[in-house]
Amino acid sequence: LKGVVVAGGVLAGAVAVASFFLRNKRR
């Protein structure tokens, strides 16, 4: 169960970083 929580956190972080980079590329 702990691994699932960690994986979810990593996935959420990756999505946040990806969206951040996409926003920067638009400018």
Rank of each mutant, 00 (worst) to 15 (best):
L1D: 02
L1H: 09
K2L: 09
K2Y: 05
K2C: 08
G3P: 11
G3S: 06
G3V: 12
G3M: 13
G3F: 10
G3W: 15
V4M: 09
V4P: 02
V4Q: 09
V4N: 06
V4D: 02
V4C: 11
V4R: 10
V5N: 03
V5G: 07
V5C: 12
V5F: 11
V6W: 08
V6M: 15
V6F: 04
V6N: 04
V6G: 03
V6P: 01
V6S: 05
A7K: 12
A7T: 14
A7Q: 07
A7Y: 15
A7M: 11
A7W: 07
G8M: 02
G8D: 04
G8K: 02
G8Q: 07
G9A: 07
G9Y: 03
G9V: 10
G9P: 05
G9N: 06
G9Q: 06
G9H: 02
V10Q: 02
V10L: 13
V10P: 02
V10R: 06
V10G: 03
L11S: 01
L11M: 09
L11Y: 05
L11E: 00
L11P: 00
L11D: 00
A12K: 04
A12E: 03
A12C: 14
A12P: 01
A12G: 07
A12D: 01
G13W: 10
G13L: 12
G13I: 06
G13Q: 08
G13P: 01
A14G: 04
A14N: 01
A14F: 06
A14I: 10
A14M: 05
V15W: 10
V15P: 00
V15Y: 13
V15Q: 02
A16M: 05
A16S: 09
A16D: 00
A16C: 08
A16T: 08
V17L: 07
V17R: 04
V17N: 00
V17Q: 01
A18Q: 02
A18V: 14
A18W: 10
A18N: 00
A18R: 04
S19V: 15
S19P: 00
S19A: 13
F20C: 09
F20L: 09
F20Y: 03
F20R: 05
F21K: 02
F21R: 05
F21H: 02
L22W: 14
L22C: 05
L22E: 01
L22Y: 09
R23W: 11
R23A: 06
R23C: 08
R23I: 08
R23K: 09
R23H: 05
N24Q: 15
N24I: 14
N24F: 13
N24W: 11
K25A: 14
K25T: 14
K25I: 15
K25Y: 13
K25G: 11
K25E: 06
K25V: 15
R26L: 09
R26A: 12
R26V: 12
R27F: 00
